[in-house]
């Protein structure tokens, strides 16, 4: 109960701050509009206003404060504007409609999941190799680290162009970018997890004369599960980012990335923000789902006390 109160307080503070921030952010636009509509604003000349601080403008035109929260194309939309847009583009639109956020989210989600599956599979395979082979440990790990230092924004267009030139387009390039971002946390977590058994545990298997295979399936893999799930949660969020980034350079017409892009072309800030929120909500759902699976798996393994 107490923690719920704390959570709600923080949420209320964020929303209050957001509304407050809308006022100076949007005041210039509001005043320009009001001037055009014939209202008396101070100072009267748009040129003069341009060089004034936003706070100063708000102080001199308090009548316009209410307007900053209801503009059609604000610089910063107010929370309720985003909420309304989210409602209208999800609940009130048919899922098949091109204007439904659910439709766009599902396009991005399929690329995310495909990329996540590829990235996770690749990550686990690499981790298994790294743990069992010194050569792989020394040769693969540095490259995996280097791969993550290249900004994805720079790399994504190249991946798309290269794949397009060999005739691959659609969901695959996006999934490749997703996989590229998500394999890394899985490699790092899995390597740590597979190396988690201590010397005593390994000695015990040696006394049974167990082979490497048995050591992997009976000891290393189960030991790595908590690490794997921690990595998967990071990986799925990274996958979503990858899929969205993958939609940007192609000027895709569907997907959350496409919504972001279209919103910024036409100055539809409310649309941009609602797409951002849709992405955040999607990420939260995916991470929560993984958390649920984690609980079930660990419970079946008898680890959760």
């Amino acid at each position: 109960m107490k923690s719920l109160l704390a959570v709600l307080t923080v949420l209320a503070a964020i929303i209050a701050f957001w509304y407050a921030a809308c006022v100076p952010m949007n005041i210039k636009g509001v005043l320009d509009q009001a001037e055009r509509a014939g209202a008396v604003v101070t100072p009267a000349a748009a040129k003069e206003r341009r060089y004034m601080s936003e706070i100063g403008l708000v102080a001199k035109n308090t009548f316009a404060i209410g307007e900053t929260w209801v503009q059609e194309r604000p610089r910063l939309p107010a929370p309720h504007q985003v909420a309304v847009e989210l409602w209208q583009t999800t609940v009130e639109k048919k899922v098949t409609s091109k204007r439904s956020l659910i439709y766009h989210a599902q396009v991005t989600l399929s690329a995310t999941l495909l990329g996540f599956a590829i990235g996770t599979g690749l990550g686990i395979l690499l981790a298994v190799g790294i743990v069992h082979s010194r050569v792989m440990d020394m040769s693969v790990m540095p490259w995996a680290i280097v791969s993550q230092t290249i900004p994805i924004i720079a790399l994504a267009p190249m991946i798309i162009v290269v794949l397009y030139s060999i005739g691959v387009q659609g969901i695959i390039p996006k999934a490749v970018i997703s996989a590229y971002l998500s394999f890394f946390p899985v490699v790092v977590g899995m390597v740590k997890g597979l190396r988690a058994p201590d010397a005593m545990q390994l000695d015990l298997l040696k006394t049974y004369n167990a082979n490497t295979n048995q050591g992997f399936w009976k000891l290393r893999l189960p030991s790595s599960m908590p690490y794997l799930f921690a990595s998967l949660k990071i990986g799925i969020a990274a996958s979503l980012v990858g899929a969205i980034v993958g939609e940007l350079p192609t000027g895709a017409v569907a997907g959350l990335g496409a919504r972001l892009l279209a919103g910024s072309y036409y100055g539809q800030t409310v649309q941009i923000w609602s797409a951002l929120f849709a992405a955040a909500i999607l990420a939260a759902l995916l991470v929560a789902l993984l958390g649920l699976i984690e609980r079930l798996v660990l419970k079946r393994m008898g680890v959760s006390a």
Partner: peptide, 23 residues
């Protein structure tokens, strides 16, 4: 060993089966 070193994800019976499975 000095520490029991049972696998936390296995029941007692399945822990005892570990060497038997391996062998």
């Amino acid at each position: 060993f000095q520490a029991a070193g049972l696998y936390p994800w296995r029941s007692i019976a399945k822990n005892i089966k570990l060497p038997l499975e391996i062998m």
